[in-house]
Nucleic acid binder design. Structure first.
Length: 419
DNA sequence: TCTGGGGTCCTATGCCTT
DNA sequence: TCTGAAGGCATAGGACCC
């Protein structure tokens, strides 16, 4: 059996742990740049604030209803997440951390256990030890555990946040209840298409012909169908392989037309990717750069483009990655557009242990020592003091974060004092 | 004026080699 | 040497997830 554990309104719950006066009030956490709503308390949901709501469009709603707004505070959420995951790990050896606020647990050899009772105990402990409320769905497959989790959330009074699909009767009832667009793995496109064929809920979906599903939605869709039928084909991914791509991408505060200004940012994104690579002891062999204009300004000319630059040797050097990234930018930049977003993604990632030298071209051996020194200084000072000349030397641009909460668990000066 | 960021997997396509 | 089939690989793009 599988269980899907999901933290309720996770980012909002994290804020509430350290400010209990927020309980019972509408709370919203915004994305980077204070752009859109990415976590909402139940009270905020009731006010009709949808997921992804642009903040500027909902300012009035926020003001009129005294909604408490927070900028996202990822160091805090990341730390709270690992606390929750630690507790979950103590209840079964088989756990897959699926996202910052979700984990799949597998119960092998738990035949003698009443899993509903067991999961209620987990729920109680996580709440007591971290202050984070969670919901748990239990079922024979991962996709069905997702369904069960949704039920536990939708009917809190009946389920108390824990629901188990125990029988085929349960399963069919659940599938008939679940609207097609809410099925895990069926997104906007597929649900629109399925609706046009009168496939309106998960039960309609599993009634389809295998070949049709395979053809229309590839093996991914077919696997999902099997899972919903109760046949477990998605396995627990416990040892997640190292990342295959590492990205640093941002939207700009306004729009940019100037090549040099975008170059500064690309260079900084490249350095950020290089730092992330070194942190996980990896190197890369390719870097992808992209730019795009503001897709929301439909009346303005649109342009988007990206380019993959392969690097002849494995590297995690700030200078090398930045160099290739800016070279890529030169190739895709077109004057005359209002650019809104750009980014750098490093790919073809390898562990530093498997470092392969190239016969003809290799990294300047000085780079490695230099990077080590830079990392040491950055770590000591806790901020980026060393920059490449191509970066923004005066840091003229900064993310909008007007309502940031404290780093309660990761910064010594922000720890709450109990008087 | 102001609309996030970071990932994964799958498939089609075209080129190259055997 | 030419040719076609088949498989490997890189790349781009689509779809999805949180």
């Amino acid at each position: 059996m599988f269980a899907l554990v999901d933290c309720n309104n996770f980012y909002v719950s994290c804020e509430r742990v350290f400010d209990p006066t927020l309980n019972g009030k509408p709370v919203v956490v915004l994305s980077n740049n204070d752009g859109c709503a990415i976590s909402r308390s139940n009270e905020a949901k009731k006010l009709g604030i949808p997921m992804g709501a642009p903040a500027f469009k909902y300012e009035k709603v926020f003001r009129n209803n005294n909604v408490k707004i927070f900028s996202s505070n990822f160091p805090l959420y990341g730390d709270m997440s690992s606390r929750v995951m630690n507790i979950l790990s103590s209840y079964t050896p088989n756990i897959e951390i699926y996202s910052i606020d979700e984990a799949f647990l597998e119960f092998k050899g738990f035949q003698e256990y009443d899993l509903e009772v067991y999961c209620k105990e987990i729920q109680k402990r996580v709440l007591k030890w971290t202050g984070i409320p969670i919901s748990i769905g239990i079922a024979p497959t991962k996709a069905l555990a997702k369904v069960a989790n949704r039920i536990s959330k939708k009917f809190p009074k009946k389920t108390k946040g824990v629901y188990m699909i125990k029988s085929d009767k349960n399963r069919i009832k659940a599938l008939k209840w679940l609207e097609i667009e809410n099925v895990w793995g069926i997104g906007f496109r597929h649900s629109k298409k399925l609706r046009s064929f009168e496939i309106n809920n998960a039960y309609d979906f599993v009634s389809l012909n295998d070949d049709w599903v395979r053809k229309q939605m590839s093996v991914v869709g077919l696997r999902l169908k099997k899972e919903l039928e109760g046949e477990s084909v998605l396995y627990l991914e416990e040892n997640r392989s190292p990342k295959k791509a590492i990205a640093t991408t941002r939207s700009f505060e306004g729009t940019i037309t100037d090549f040099e200004k975008i170059k500064e940012r690309i260079s900084t994104f490249a350095v950020c990717c290089a730092e992330k690579l070194r942190l996980q002891k990896s190197t890369c062999n390719a870097v992808y750069v992209f730019v795009r204009s503001n897709k929301f300004q439909k009346n303005k000319p649109q342009y988007r483009n990206g380019i993959l630059m392969t690097i002849p040797f494995a590297t995690n050097s700030n200078m090398v990655i930045s160099k290739y990234a800016t070279e890529g930018l030169k190739k895709i930049f077109r004057p005359g557009f209002n650019y809104k977003k750009s980014g750098v993604i490093v790919m073809a990632i390898n562990s530093i242990k498997n470092y392969q030298t190239n016969l003809f071209e290799n990294e300047n051996p000085k780079h490695r020592k230099l990077m080590k020194t830079i990392d040491y200084i950055q770590k000591k000072d806790g901020q980026s003091k060393i920059k490449l000349a191509s970066q923004d030397l005066k840091k003229r641009w900064k993310m909008k974060q007007e309502r940031l909460s404290n780093l309660y668990t990761t910064k010594i000066n922000d720890i709450i004092e109990v008087k």
